[in-house]
Simulated scan of single mutants.
Amino acid sequence: MIYWIFLSVAIVCEILGTLAMKYSSLNGGIGGHIAMYLLIATSYILLSLAVKRIALGVAYALWEGAGILLITLFSVLMFSESLSLVKVIALILLLAGITLIKSGTEMPKRKRNEVQHAG
């Protein structure tokens, strides 16, 4: 369970770091850049911890996919960026891809047996 928390916090840090990058590019100042560096570094560190127990493809798909989805939505709300029909379709396809990757990933046999015996 802790590894999913690591992944969730990594996603939040990635989103906040990317939004800080956009904010600092529009408003100047070093604070946004420092926040970006710290948040994105934290995101990668937490992602590296998450992949100890979460399949790499699943973790990366969730980390990057959720990041793209939420960064796009926040950039529309916060920075008045456009959201075209093509972007909406792409985001829907992105969600479908993440779902398929997650549902198509099996635990290794050794791990599955350990889980079955533990439960």
Rank of each mutant, 00 (worst) to 15 (best):
V76W: 03
G29A: 01
L94W: 09
M107E: 03
W63I: 06
V12P: 06
L46G: 06
G17R: 03
L16W: 00
A90C: 12
M107S: 00
R53T: 07
K102L: 12
T18C: 07
I54G: 03
E14G: 15
Y60L: 15
T99P: 06
R110K: 10
V12W: 02
G104C: 07
Y44F: 14
S43V: 08
L73E: 02
N27P: 01
T18N: 14
L69T: 10
P108T: 08
T42H: 04
A59C: 09
I92F: 07
L16I: 11
F74V: 00
L16S: 06
G67H: 06
E14F: 03
S103F: 09
L46C: 10
Y60N: 12
K102T: 08
L47K: 06
Y23A: 05
I71R: 12
V88C: 02
L49P: 08
E64A: 14
L19A: 10
A61Q: 12
A61W: 04
V12I: 15
T42L: 13
G31I: 05
M36F: 02
G104P: 04
Y44I: 14
L85G: 03
A61M: 12
L73K: 08
M107Q: 04
I45F: 13
V86A: 12
T18E: 06
I30D: 04
F79W: 11
I101A: 09
V12R: 00
L83K: 01
A55H: 14
K52R: 15
G57H: 15
K52D: 11
H33T: 09
I71V: 15
S43M: 11
G57W: 14
P108V: 02
H33K: 09
S48E: 06
L38E: 00
L95Q: 06
T72C: 15
T18H: 10
L91C: 08
G29P: 07
L73Q: 01
E106K: 05
M21N: 05
T18I: 08
K111T: 08
V58W: 05
K22C: 07
A41F: 12
I54V: 02
A41L: 11
I101H: 04
L94N: 12
Y23F: 14
L39T: 08
A41D: 05
K22E: 02
L91G: 04
L46D: 05
S43P: 08
L26Q: 14
K102S: 11
L70R: 01
L93T: 11
A59F: 09
L19G: 09
C13E: 00
G104W: 00
S75I: 01
I34T: 10
I101K: 13
L56P: 08
I30M: 05
K22D: 05
L69W: 12
A35I: 10
I68K: 11
G97A: 06
G104D: 09
E106V: 01
G17K: 00
P108L: 04
I92G: 11
